[in-house]
């Protein structure tokens, strides 16, 4: 077997070797054949390693999806689909309903989006249109990118000790129960954390607006605001939307900062100022204490839902961006 493959490897190179053979002494010829055989073998190994590594990415993602599905089967069997809109989560009484967490996740994420969108679009327009160059725009750009670099546990810590007292004072002023911690505080923290994603995406998109379009509008006498409104905005609409989707994906899966300031109760939040729980935060809190199979499996099912939702959102966002950049 070994000699066979040896021969076939050499025959591939045969014509070239024959040309060399004319003047080469026998001993050198052997050496050369040996070396080229070794190189071909190493090349094949290298190509195979590259192939395996690329395959490994697929295996990891497939493995993650498979593990989540398999491990959530016990809860799917025991609780059925109605698990997702069951309103009570009481592990002590063996009652599991995911609705409070779904609601908590949606409330915090969308509230955070609404708060952050004016700022991230403001930065996008500022950097993409008004000040594309210069030290001031560099400062803003780098600072905004650093916002994404701060670890989420530090946002949570800061939120717990600085933001929560401010929110508490605000709540007692407008006359709701002053918890401080809760959906609203989490949304505030999240909105800071997701600003960079939509902002950098929006900036790229605004830069790509063809200057002929803008110049045409200017030459017709449009003001800068009118150019932004009727040229830049319609042109970049889908790209801006994709940026928002990407930040939504971030907000849905964010765990630590939210866990630290949301209050962690499994009751359905009565208002946006009440404490609650998100899917990610309930997993973080209860995963290591889950002692029964169904309890653990119910938590994993939350993870599965989170996984599917973020994958779909990210895929749609990436698809839009790809289409936008290819046009």
């Amino acid at each position: 077997m070994e000699t066979n493959s040896n021969n076939s490897a050499i025959t591939r190179k045969q014509p070239m070797l024959r040309v060399i053979n004319i003047k080469t002494p026998e001993i050198l010829k052997l050496k050369r054949i040996k070396r080229s055989y070794r190189h071909i073998k190493a090349e094949n190994v290298f190509r195979r390693v590259l192939f395996t590594m690329a395959l490994l990415m697929l295996v990891i993602v497939a493995g993650i999806a498979l593990t989540l599905t398999v491990e959530s089967i016990p809860s799917l069997k025991a609780l059925g689909v109605s698990y997702l809109w069951g309103k009570v989560w009481d592990p002590v009484a063996d009652v599991y309903g995911a609705f409070p967490f779904l609601l908590g996740t949606l409330l915090t994420s969308f509230l955070a989006l609404i708060i952050s969108i004016p700022f991230s679009f403001g930065i996008a327009i500022f950097l993409g249109e008004y000040y594309p160059k210069g030290w001031f725009s560099n400062l803003i750009k780098n600072t905004v990118e650093l916002i994404a670099a701060v670890p989420s546990v530090i946002y949570g810590f800061w939120g717990l000790f600085v933001l929560v007292p401010i929110v508490r004072a605000f709540e007692s002023k407008i006359g709701v129960t002053p918890y401080g911690i809760g959906i609203f505080s989490s949304a505030l923290i999240l909105s800071i954390m997701i600003i960079p994603y939509a902002a950098s995406m929006g900036r790229e998109m605004i830069r790509m607006v063809p200057s002929q379009l803008k110049e045409g509008a200017y030459s017709l006498g449009a003001t800068r605001y009118e150019v932004m409104r009727s040229i830049v905005l319609p042109y970049t609409k889908s790209g801006l939307f994709a940026g928002v989707l990407l930040s939504l994906g971030r907000a849905l899966g964010e765990t630590m900062a939210v866990t630290m300031v949301i209050g962690n109760t499994s009751l359905i939040p009565k208002s946006i100022f009440a404490p609650g729980n998100t899917m990610a935060s309930v997993i973080a809190n209860e995963f290591t204490e889950a002692d029964r199979t169904v309890y653990l499996s119910a938590l994993i099912e939350l993870g599965l839902v989170l996984f599917l939702v973020t994958v779909v959102i990210n895929m749609i966002g990436k698809r839009i961006i790809k289409r936008f950049t290819n046009d």
Binding site: V61, I64, L252, G253, A284, G303, F307, V311, N314, M315
Partner: peptide, 9 residues
Amino acid sequence: ILQGIPSIV
């Protein structure tokens, strides 16, 4: 996909 998966998952 891997880039978008929440870290807790």
